[in-house]
């Protein structure tokens, strides 16, 4: 009789413990999913929304990555689109000029191997993969100069590959954009 009571008591304890552990693991999964959602919405991580392709061998022949179309473009809605390519062993344009406090979209790709796209002093850090277009919405808070080193080993001349990003005042940029349709700060 006594052993029967012990058995049902043990069963109740086991059920309670199992329920608690199950709840805890569900909460952990829920927190992780919620965390990913939160940082996704607040752009702490910027996973690319679209997969776009571009043939690395023919970037210079047609499309948006021809030499004369690279650089910063003022859009009708006041935002700025910057187009650039990475190649062994430089970025074109070598110096990118953008306005502060303005929504900016970087569109870039690689003409040969995988390159890195990192702007020092910001959380902008992605890869330029041959065949695919990297599309990154960003915003610079204040004017200033940043360096943009290739952060992905791209060959024997990798250490010499970097560009500059010059963030300038919004009004100054608007004046520049009035005179020229694609802006760079290459001297």
């Amino acid at each position: 009789m006594a052993s029967e009571t012990d058995h049902s008591l043990g069963e109740a304890v086991a059920a309670r413990i199992e329920r608690r552990w199950a709840t805890l693991s569900i909460v952990i999964v829920g927190v992780l999913v919620g965390m990913a959602t939160y940082i996704g919405i607040h752009q702490a991580t910027m996973p690319q929304g679209r997969v776009e392709t571009a043939d690395p061998k023919t970037l210079h022949l047609s499309g948006e990555f021809v030499e004369s179309n690279l650089g910063s473009e003022m859009q009708a809605d006041g935002s700025v689109t910057v187009r650039a390519i990475g190649q062994q062993y430089s970025f074109t344009p070598q110096c990118i000029v953008v306005p502060a406090e303005t929504p900016i979209t970087f569109r870039a790709t690689s003409a040969d191997v995988v390159h890195g796209f990192l702007i020092e002093g910001t959380n902008i850090n992605t890869m330029l993969v041959p065949g695919y277009v990297t599309d990154l919405p960003v915003r610079f808070k204040a004017p200033g100069d940043h360096v943009m080193p290739c952060q992905e080993f791209c060959g024997i001349g990798h250490q010499g590959m970097w560009g500059k990003v010059k963030v300038i005042d919004k009004a100054a940029f608007r004046d520049m954009a009035a005179a020229k349709r694609r802006l760079t700060c290459v001297d």
């Binding site: 776009e52 571009a54 047609s62 030499e67 004369s68």
Partner: peptide, 21 residues
């Protein structure tokens, strides 16, 4: 799902560029 980049009408060069692939 990959898609080809939209072929926007960008600025064409005002000089001849190499067309060698």
């Amino acid at each position: 799902v990959p898609r080809a980049a939209v072929q926007e009408t960008g600025i064409k060069p005002d000089f001849k560029t190499s067309n060698v692939v």
